[in-house]
Design a protein around this nucleic acid. Structure first.
Length: 275
DNA sequence: TACCAGGTGTGGC
DNA sequence: GCCACACATGGT
């Protein structure tokens, strides 16, 4: 196991893990966290102004935590938008993780019309039952492992009506993955809609968290409550407006707003403006 | 007890 | 294309 450090100024472990972008993490006894991705894991804790990271796969998690990106520049650009100042200040330790594409697809299919606590439990059970035993924890199940599950078995893990989506999408996945074009976000978003259980919002999450295409603005219930106005009265209108407003920074902006709105139980655009 | 949660699929128009 | 409605599950 290797250990290395990162600057904590724009890296808050709790904010980054608990802001709703990822589901396979836990608190540890020493006051830190452990995060799992595919068959890998990484321990994190804070010491002074440094984040201490430990993993068998340093290169993977350096990329995963987006450690080469300047979040000072991102927060600075976004804070210039008056409606974002409070949210960016509140969650300025958030980093957008570079998650695995396949794992993001199935994680966010589970996330639809669901709550984060329950999503975490379902995904943990999926790993424990179908994923490879890595000694002390289980990997995220590979497609050939997940495809062994029947719809009934998936339902027993608490997936409800999403069981059929997982069952169908794991079989549709190869052809969809083959059609992904990282240089064309719109084409990629459209391609993802072919998967069962993937609609516009889940596709936006996959694009943002699984492909790190930051020209993306997933509109869930929290974002919609925070952003809706008389003019922006549908998720589609909210999405289009803020995509054009924030451009390549839209994905970051969305995550600051989501975290702020959810942590503070924001219920309207007026609450955001009141700060 | 209704309502909510990082919404989507389906059928009717 | 848009709209209304159903939908598993667990928490409040």
């Amino acid at each position: 196991m290797r250990t290395w450090t990162a600057d904590a100024e724009f890296f808050d472990i709790k904010q980054t893990l608990e802001c709703g972008q990822v589901f396979r993490f836990k608190k540890t006894d020493d006051g830190g966290y452990v995060i799992h991705s595919l068959d890998k894991r990484c321990f994190l804790r804070k010491e002074g102004d440094k984040i201490i990271l430990s993993s068998d796969d340093e290169d993977y998690f350096r990329n995963y935590f987006d450690l080469d990106t300047d979040y000072g520049a991102i927060t600075s650009r976004l804070s210039a938008f008056p409606e974002l100042t409070a949210a960016v200040n509140f969650g300025k330790g958030i980093r957008i993780l570079r998650q695995d594409f396949y794992e993001a697809v199935f994680s966010f299919i589970v996330s639809a019309n669901n709550n984060i606590g329950r999503i975490k439990g379902i995904i943990e059970r999926l790993c424990d039952v179908y994923g490879t035993d890595c000694g002390g924890y289980h990997a995220f199940p590979k497609a050939d492992q997940l495809s062994l599950a029947t719809v009934e078995q998936l339902k027993q893990l608490g997936l409800g009506y999403r069981a059929q989506y997982i069952y169908d999408s794991v079989r549709e996945f190869p052809s969809v993955a083959a059609g992904i074009d990282l240089t064309d976000a719109d084409k990629t978003h459209k391609k993802l809609l072919e998967l069962k259980g993937v609609g516009p919002k889940v596709a936006d999450c996959i694009v943002l968290f699984g492909l790190h295409i930051t020209r993306s603005y997933p509109v869930d219930t929290w974002i919609f409550k925070a952003n809706a106005t008389d003019a922006l009265n549908t998720p589609q209108k909210v999405r289009d407006y803020f995509l054009s407003r924030y451009g390549e920074d839209a994905g970051f902006a969305q995550q600051y707003v989501f975290y702020y709105a959810r942590e503070n139980r924001i219920s309207s655009t007026a609450d955001i403006k009141a700060g």
